[in-house]
Every structure is written in C-alpha cells, then in structure tokens.
Simulated assay, not measured.
Amino acid sequence: MVNLNGKLTSSDTALFNNKNRGLKYGDALFETVRCVNGVLFFWEDHYFRLMSSMRILRMEIPMEFTLEYLEEEIKKTVQQNGFENHAARVRLTVFRNDGGLYGPETNNVSFIIEVSALESPFYVIDDNPYEVELFKDYYVNKDMLSNLKTNNKILNVVASVYAKENGYANCLLINTDKQVVETINGNLFLVVGNQVKTPPLSDGCLDGIVRKKLVEIISATEDFQLLEESISPFELQKADELFFTNSIVGIQPIRKYRKKEFTDKVSRELVGKLNAKARIG
C-alpha cells in the first residue's frame, strides 16, 4: 500500500500521468526515514529539512503539513503494510502539482509515502568488503541546490552504473573544484589520528541528517576533533579510516580505495552513540 495525499491505495495502482512534474522535470523533494516499531528516527530533523527545502524551491506548504500530520500519515502507511512492529524504510516524496513547462502553473504540492522492509532494527556495521573509486566523469555543483534532497539525481544514477560496471560498491563524487564531497548515497567522513573530517556544505554535499547527528556526537566528545573542511583526493590514501553515512544504513565503513585498505575502529565506536541518539529522539 502507498499513501497519496492521505489516501491509501494499492502499490499496483497507476498514480501519475504524463503531466507529473516530478517525472518531467524532477520538480520534487524526498526524505528517506528509518522507522522501527512505529518510531521514526530523527523525524523532527527530517521534517524541518523538508520544510526548509520546500521554501527554497518556492513550493507552497499546505496548512495541514504539520509535524504531527505527516508523522501520522507515515505511521498509518507503515501499519497498513504490516511493519508497525518491525524495521521499515520510509520514503516521503513531495512534488509540485501538474501544469506548466519549466514555469509551473501552480506551486501547490502533493505527497506520496512508500514503505519497505529493513533487516535490522538498529544501525549495525557491515563487515563485508566495500571498495570505492573516484567518479570523475561529472561534478557536483558548489551551491545550495546540491545540499537539498531533490529528485534531480542523474549524476548519482550514472555514478551507480559506473560503479556496477567496474565492480565497485560505491563511488566518491567530486565537485567543480575537484574536491571530494560525498558518496553516491551518503556523506563522507575521513579519519586521521583523532581528527575526523567531513566536507562543509559549501562544497556542495548533501545536508544529511545523520551527518548532522554525527557532527553533534563528535563535537561533544573529547576523543576526537571534528573538522568541516574540504577533502582533497590526495588525502584519501593517507587516511586511517573512511566511512559514509545516511539515514538508512547509519554508518558504512569503506574498506578499500585503490591500494589502501582502511580500519573501522572509529566507525564502530560512533555507531553505538548514533543508535543511542536515535533511541532518545
């Protein structure tokens, strides 16, 4: 079952026509949220990021789009799919309504909620091999639109195809200044000694929710020094550890980049703190 504007319908139902602006122009935003036993991890952060992004894209925010309303719609969808006592992946997509060419006829929006099963109720460290490579065919722009979680993800799609064709688990994306900004599906962190570095938003990386939470966690501990600074490709093979984050996997250690293999000590230490923060809310 999927939820379109508060109405539950079969996932086999045709929901959109050829005028859908998300399809035609990528005129849409989305949030991907982990839901465990009916609890949405970091829901307030997801909600306020969505509201901020809608304002930036000049979408009209409906009066009923409160924190509580969208949370209830998500939980209703989770329950109808039988995941209320399990772990589930939730995707909430907001798109501008039909009409117009590049210039929309209306700034009013619709939403759709989809859910699917997850294996683990908490964030865990994946011990499998995980090799990455730089993707240098196209670049991430250094602007505010790159910080948003929009449906304009063709660079990520092409990079994913490149990774699959060449046997990599993921790719590292670079911006127009040739600085490493993120992976295909998450925010990048680099560890050297007790320093943990992540690219600043001004470099064009996604304004990720788990990135934000890890910045808070690392900044609050005396064990590590957090740096929000640009990462050069030349730094990668000098790092002790590389990992990336997103709202579904939590923390994913990168095991190998070219000839360099990495440890996962810091990843393992941080994932426990991240789980604790998720349970607190």
Rank of each mutant, 00 (worst) to 15 (best):
200 P>S: 05
10 S>I: 04
268 R>M: 02
96 R>I: 10
36 V>I: 10
223 D>L: 14
10 S>E: 14
196 V>K: 00
29 L>S: 14
207 D>Y: 05
238 K>T: 03
156 N>Q: 12
5 N>S: 14
108 N>Y: 14
114 E>G: 13
46 H>T: 02
45 D>E: 12
85 N>Y: 12
43 W>K: 15
255 R>F: 07
92 L>T: 10
119 E>C: 04
33 V>C: 08
212 K>Y: 12
70 L>H: 05
262 F>S: 00
249 V>Q: 07
111 F>G: 14
236 L>N: 15
87 A>M: 10
59 M>Q: 11
108 N>G: 10
152 N>T: 02
188 L>P: 05
122 F>E: 10
184 I>F: 04
67 L>G: 02
4 L>P: 04
10 S>W: 14
174 I>Y: 01
81 N>V: 03
48 F>T: 15
209 I>F: 08
164 K>Y: 09
281 G>I: 04
242 L>S: 08
26 G>L: 07
174 I>E: 03
13 T>I: 13
230 S>Y: 04
39 V>D: 15
281 G>F: 07
38 G>V: 05
248 I>N: 03
76 K>H: 13
277 K>H: 10
97 N>S: 10
30 F>T: 12
18 N>I: 13
216 E>G: 01
22 G>W: 09
187 N>L: 03
141 N>I: 04
24 K>I: 11
206 L>G: 03
244 F>H: 14
57 L>Y: 06
159 A>T: 01
22 G>M: 13
169 A>V: 03
9 T>F: 14
174 I>W: 00
160 S>T: 07
148 L>G: 09
191 V>P: 04
185 N>I: 14
